[in-house]
Amino acid sequence: EVHFESHGEEQAMRVVKMLKKRNLTVEVKVENNKWIITAK
């Protein structure tokens, strides 16, 4: 499981795309203006 924190939507979306290319399940949450990305 991979956790990634991002402060910007643009950066977060880039990471999500990259993770999805690896056929991982990606969950995105926004907490306290931080984008929290979890990949399994």
Rank of each mutant, 00 (worst) to 15 (best):
V2T: 07
E10M: 06
T25N: 10
L19A: 03
V15M: 10
K34C: 08
R22T: 08
E10H: 07
A12T: 04
M18C: 15
G8D: 15
F4V: 05
K17Q: 11
H7S: 11
H3A: 07
E31D: 06
R14E: 08
R14V: 10
V15E: 03
E10N: 06
V2F: 14
E9M: 12
E5S: 07
E1D: 11
T25E: 12
V30L: 11
E9T: 06
E27F: 11
G8K: 12
K34A: 04
T25F: 12
T38V: 10
N33S: 05
E31G: 04
A12P: 00
I36W: 04
S6M: 15
F4P: 03
K34S: 05
V2H: 15
E27T: 13
A12H: 03
F4I: 10
V2A: 06
K40N: 07
V26R: 00
V30I: 12
V16T: 02
K20W: 08
V16R: 02
Q11M: 11
F4Q: 04
L19E: 04
W35F: 07
L19H: 02
F4K: 04
I36K: 01
E5P: 02
V26D: 00
G8T: 15
E10Y: 07
K20E: 15
K20I: 12
K34W: 05
V28I: 12
M13Y: 05
G8R: 13
M13N: 06
N32D: 11
L24V: 05
V15I: 15
H3N: 08
E1P: 09
V2K: 06
M18K: 08
E9F: 14
E1I: 13
E5L: 11
G8E: 14
N23Y: 15
L19D: 03
E9R: 13
E9Y: 15
E31Q: 08
K29D: 02
L24A: 03
L19W: 04
M13V: 06
N23S: 06
K34E: 03
M13Q: 08
L24T: 01
W35I: 07
I36S: 03
E1G: 10
T25S: 10
G8P: 03
K34Q: 06
L19G: 04
K20N: 07
K34M: 11
V30Y: 14
M13R: 11
R14L: 10
V28L: 06
K40L: 09
K20T: 07
K34H: 09
E5W: 08
R22Q: 12
L24I: 06
V15A: 03
R14A: 12
I36Q: 04
V30E: 05
M18D: 11
E5Y: 10
E9Q: 09
E1W: 13
E9W: 15
R14D: 07
K20V: 11
N33Y: 05
K40Y: 13
V30S: 04
L24K: 03
E10F: 05
V28A: 01
K29N: 05
M13W: 06
S6P: 03
V2C: 15
E31T: 05
M18P: 02
V26H: 00
L19S: 01
N32A: 06
E9S: 06
H7E: 13
K29R: 13
M13G: 03
M18I: 13
H3P: 03
N33H: 08
R14M: 08
M18V: 08
E27G: 03
V15Q: 02
H7R: 09
G8S: 15
S6K: 09
T25W: 11
E1M: 12
H3F: 11
T38N: 04
V16D: 04
M13A: 07
V2Q: 07
A12Y: 05
I36V: 08
A39L: 12
N32E: 08
E10G: 05
K29M: 08
N23H: 13
V2Y: 14
I37Y: 00
E5V: 14
K29L: 08
N32M: 04
K21D: 14
L19T: 01
V2P: 02
L19V: 02
A39E: 02
K21F: 09
A12L: 11
N32S: 03
M18H: 12
E5N: 05
K20P: 06
E1Q: 08
I37Q: 00
V16F: 02
W35S: 00
I36A: 02
E9L: 13
R22G: 13
S6G: 10
S6T: 14
V28W: 08
I37S: 00
E5F: 10
M13D: 05
E31L: 08
E27Q: 08
T38D: 04
E31F: 07
K40Q: 09
T38M: 08
E5G: 05
E27S: 12
K34G: 03
V26F: 07
Q11I: 10
K17N: 13
A12D: 01
K17A: 14
A12C: 15
M18F: 08
T38H: 07
K20Q: 13
G8Q: 13
V26K: 00
F4H: 04
A12W: 09
L24Q: 02
V16W: 01
K40P: 03
M18S: 09
K17S: 11
N32Q: 05
K21L: 09
R22K: 11
V30C: 14
V26Q: 00
L19R: 01
L24G: 01
G8V: 14
L24S: 01
K17P: 01
H3D: 03
W35A: 00
A12E: 01
W35L: 07
V15D: 02
V15K: 04
N32Y: 04
Q11K: 06
V16C: 15
T25G: 02
E27H: 11
L24D: 01
R22D: 07
Q11H: 12
T38E: 03
V26A: 02
E27W: 07
I37D: 00
N33T: 02
K40F: 12
E5T: 11
E1R: 10
K20L: 14
V28E: 00
V26T: 02
R14N: 10
I36E: 02
T25I: 14
V16H: 01
L24Y: 15
H3T: 13
K17R: 13
A12I: 08
S6H: 05
E9D: 03
H7C: 15
E31M: 08
A12G: 02
K21Y: 09
F4Y: 12
N33R: 02
R14T: 05
V15H: 03
R14H: 08
H7A: 11
F4A: 02
H7T: 12
N23E: 07
E27I: 11
L24N: 02
W35Y: 08
A39R: 01
E10D: 10
N33W: 03
G8H: 13
K34N: 07
R14F: 05
M13H: 05
E10P: 03
H3V: 14
A39S: 04
H3L: 12
K29H: 09
N33G: 15
V16K: 02
A39Q: 01
T38I: 12
N32I: 03
K29P: 00
E27Y: 09
E1V: 13
K20R: 09
N23A: 06
R14K: 09
N33K: 03
I36F: 07
G8F: 14
K29A: 05
N32G: 12
V15W: 11
A12Q: 01
Q11G: 07
K20F: 13
M13C: 14
V2I: 13
I36G: 01
K21T: 10
E1L: 12
V16L: 04
I37A: 00
A12M: 09
K34T: 08
E5I: 15
H7F: 13
W35T: 01
A39D: 00
E1K: 09
E9A: 11
V26S: 00
R22N: 09
N33L: 05
N23M: 10
V28S: 00
K40G: 05
V16Y: 03
G8L: 14
V15Y: 06
N23V: 05
I37N: 00
T25R: 10
E27V: 12
F4T: 03
H7D: 13
T25M: 11
T38R: 04
T38F: 05
H7N: 10
N32R: 02
E31V: 12
T38G: 01
T38C: 12
K40M: 11
K34I: 13
K34R: 11
V28T: 02
K20G: 10
E9V: 10
W35K: 00
V28C: 07
S6V: 15
K17Y: 06
T25H: 14
N33Q: 05
I37L: 01
K21W: 13
V30A: 02
I37F: 01
E5R: 07
K34F: 10
V16I: 14
E31W: 06
I36P: 01
